[in-house]
Design a protein around this nucleic acid. Structure first.
Length: 238
DNA sequence: GTTCCGATTCCCT
DNA sequence: GGGAATCGGAACC
């Protein structure tokens, strides 16, 4: 039987407020054939169109229109020519706040998830990383814009099960992979994860962009100005 | 129309 | 720890 679900009201308070609510919550995808559920262990906040690390920073475009829409919808984007990543829109209509789902633990549909992620060597790797999480859940282009709060949703969020998952410490640190200009926006502890979780993806600072493969392309980016942003701060917030 | 580059992952050293 | 794979969005000419 289906458990409780997070409501649009739950998901409308903005990315920094919603982040702790999502840790431990369970994202379920029932595509009509298979059902896979992932308990979220790591999320990352994107605060809106003023956030230089966000896709929404350049304003509303066809790609980012879902982010600018009402909360409770899934924003799915394509990255590096091969990966899909999923975000939960969690701010008022027009604000473009969203939460990137970075990692989780597959707690239901393990066999299906293993089939979708054949390269994972251990189950903890099935959804460790944003693109891996999307793959394990079967999330792709078709799920962009999905309403997680609709009565007939095939993709939805269930709140943390306090009985099964004992209270764990929530830690925060700088976001992953956000590079370039942005100053404080790069270093604010807008990444949230659950302590002592093997499914949390390893921290990597914003990547200094490399020379383009093969074609003698120029060295892109800001060169030496693009140095490491910060270490894993491990700021405890009980 | 063309170019640049990414909220990544995987494989090899 | 480093490099390649791969394609769509957005900027630029």
């Amino acid at each position: 039987m289906p458990g409780d679900r997070l409501t649009r009201a739950d998901l409308s308070a903005g990315s920094l407020q919603v982040a702790p609510l999502l840790l431990g919550a369970v994202l379920v995808h029932h595509d009509g054939v298979a059902r896979v559920a992932v308990r979220l262990t790591e999320v990352e906040a994107y605060t809106g169109s003023a956030d230089p690390g966000s896709h929404a920073h350049r304003g509303r475009t066809p790609r980012t229109q879902v982010m600018f829409g009402p909360p409770g919808h899934l924003y799915v984007y394509f990255s590096y020519g091969m990966h899909w990543c999923a975000n939960v829109v969690c701010g008022p209509d027009g604000e473009a706040a969203a939460e990137l789902l970075r990692a989780g633990e597959v707690i239901e549909g393990l066999d299906v998830a293993r089939g979708r992620r054949p390269t994972a060597r251990v189950d903890a790797d099935l959804a460790r990383g944003p693109a891996r999480l999307a793959a394990a859940l079967g999330i792709g282009r078709d799920q962009n814009g999905a309403d997680l709060c609709a009565p007939a949703a095939t993709l939805w969020l269930e709140p943390p099960d306090a009985g099964r998952v004992p209270g764990r410490q929530t830690l925060t640190g700088p976001r992953v992979g956000v590079s370039g200009p942005g100053g404080d926006a790069r270093t604010f502890p807008w990444r949230f994860w659950t302590a002592d979780e093997p499914t949390v993806s390893t921290y990597r600072p914003g990547t200094p962009r490399r020379r383009r493969a093969g074609t003698g392309g120029r060295l892109s980016g800001a060169g030496d100005a693009d140095r490491e942003v910060g270490r894993d701060e491990r700021t405890a917030t009980p």
